[in-house]
Nucleic acid binder design. Structure first.
Lengths: 355, 355
DNA sequence: GTGAAAGCGCTAACAC
DNA sequence: GTGTTAGCGCTTTCAC
């Protein structure tokens, strides 16, 4: 019984009838009086279509406001020309990465889609794996994993990790020179005469966090300063956690004269806590961060920090991923970008004269 | 066969041998010795499956690491349980929105995907329309448009706009009380004794920008202060443009004693230019922003600004969208959230004594 | 309880 | 040049 009021039926009733469902190629074909495959060929500029037909079909497409369904096309083709970026949450670091990724995507013919675990990372370690298998090969041609919670992803397509998990051996990575960076940051503190230096560490499962702590320890050892482990507190790369840690660190007697935080977000938290406790920065406390996120330049005082080229990392990761997707053999599968110490006003010589 | 950890390769014994492609339901079915439809029923917990079969199939799924293809499922079902957020670029405002959206998505059963035009908005006005028709009804069940470049979207599904384009009549919107907010900001300046007040305006095609300018003019009129149109300069909600505008505004003789910027990003740019020109803030220039993005609290001096609950706007937009998707009749289709003046240190009484 | 078969919207052989 | 046909991986009647 032809009782179903479906869009296609409407259209079959006569031209010009617009239903509320999305316009399909089928409808374009009927409306243009040609076959679906002809429409498909017109859309994809395949050979073997007369100019007149092409023009006519394009007219109908225009008139009906037709756009190809990404999903249907993806199911049919193995290629989708979409790159996915998987981030745990939208915060300053991942946002910078996203900007870099967007830079790299420009004029590449790819589109960019970001998936967020919504900050629920601790509850769902390994969420990337699930997302990856549901998307890869169908929705995206490849993916960039930002600070992933998993080591190896047995993915069905190219994957590049930014700031990878510890022990990632197989997947290509883009990362900053965390060891050198941390060393430089701590050396700076040492040169200013500080010896009682605290550290707020990052997410223990990330290579970057481990290397930053290692750099901290090495710089201290190099200067013949013994590490006081009670001054090394966990911050997990999260502002809240870092704030708590900073309270413990700064609220106690014999507090450090300087703090190295494994990320700017955490360094900013240290700054806040210092203000809260009436500890003047840099007069009574020097603080060095890591990342050089935009916010670090705007803090009071502006943060001395180890800059890593986050945006460039996003750009490189996507560029590398595209090479992989295109089947090229990239020269290097593990790219490490340099870090620089950015001197601002949150550090100062121990016992220095007031400015 | 002992010691074969590659489930997929084992399975490839039959027809359709393709080693590295994703695991399909078909493969699970073969491996489990059942039909595809049975596997589908197990996955979707449909009735009519024996506990034994379910357990067995689940075991195979586990072993093979199978995950359903989002694309294939989307093509078949009308529902995808995915919500899309379309942003022009990843910057502080849209990122805050994204965070709010992520909040709202939690435990809703929906997933969140962000699409970015990659900052190429000016080149591609109306990009949302294209994305929308390619995604809606297939990839996403609904979408949130952040500061869209288009008025009406003849979309095939629910759409909610945050900070909409001028003249949007049909689509539901979530927005802040821009008029009141701007009035409050400018009144604050007037109360401090300023009368020569400049303004850096926003993207002219956005309702928010227009209302902020209107609020500026109304507050001035209300105080009996004539608007000097040469003091109203376009900033387009972009830091670069605002910087240029600020240079013109502050570099000239007879510069204003106060500036109201239609966004924090632009206010921050004004701060930078002031520093560049050696104009001390707030001593020689008061600055009021709009948004209260995180960065505004960290500037030097911290920015006095009109706060709009960006994150909440993201949350509300998604909540509203979900109602729409679920077929509910939302009580209100246009939600306006309150704004508050946040007093920090970038404003000061005209001719006030040094602190 | 389970399987066979149709079909979502699209593309790519291959016919005509 | 253009149409016909066969699926991509999945869900869902409807038989058995």
């Amino acid at each position: 019984m032809p009782g179903a009021p479906r869009g296609i039926d409407d259209l079959a009733a006569g031209p010009g009838v617009r239903s509320h469902r999305r316009v399909t190629m089928q409808q374009v074909a009927v409306e243009a009086g040609v076959s679906v495959s002809t429409v498909s060929k017109v859309i994809n500029s395949r050979y073997g279509i007369s100019a007149a037909t092409a023009a006519h079909v394009n007219g109908v497409i225009e008139r009906l406001g037709y756009e190809t369904s990404l999903v249907a096309r993806s199911l049919r083709n193995q290629r989708t020309n979409v790159i996915g970026v998987l981030v745990a949450d939208f915060e300053p670091f991942s946002t910078e990465v996203l900007k870099g990724a967007a830079d790299a995507i420009r004029d590449s013919g790819f589109e960019l889609v970001a998936y967020s675990a919504g900050g629920r990372v601790d509850e769902h370690v390994g969420w990337e794996r699930r997302y990856l298998s549901r998307l890869m090969g169908t929705l995206v041609d490849g993916a960039v994993l930002v600070t992933p919670t998993v080591t190896d992803v047995d993915s069905d397509g190219p994957v590049v990790a930014i700031d990878p998990h510890t022990g990632s051996t197989t997947i290509p990575t883009v990362t900053a020179d965390n060891l050198q960076g941390a060393r430089a940051g701590v050396r700076h503190l040492l040169q200013l005469g500080h010896t009682r230096i605290g550290m707020v560490t990052g997410r223990v499962d990330l290579v970057s966090a481990q290397l930053r702590e290692q750099g901290f320890r090495e710089a201290l050892a190099e200067a013949g300063v013994a590490v006081d482990d009670s001054l090394v507190v966990p911050g997990a790369f999260e502002a809240d956690v870092a704030r708590e840690a900073a309270r413990g660190l700064l609220g106690r007697p014999g507090r450090p004269t300087a703090v190295f935080a494994a990320s700017d977000q955490m360094a900013l938290a240290v700054l806040e806590v210092a203000a809260e406790l009436g500890i003047r920065v840099p007069h009574e406390l020097s603080v060095v961060g890591f990342d050089n996120i935009p916010e670090s330049a705007l803090s009071d005082p502006p943060l001395t920090t180890v800059q890593q080229p986050i945006r460039e990392m996003g750009r490189d990761a996507v560029a590398l991923l595209i090479e992989l997707i295109e089947g090229a053999e990239p020269a290097e599968l593990h790219r490490t970008l340099g870090t620089d110490l950015v001197l601002r006003r949150s550090t100062r010589a121990l016992g220095g004269t007031p400015s």
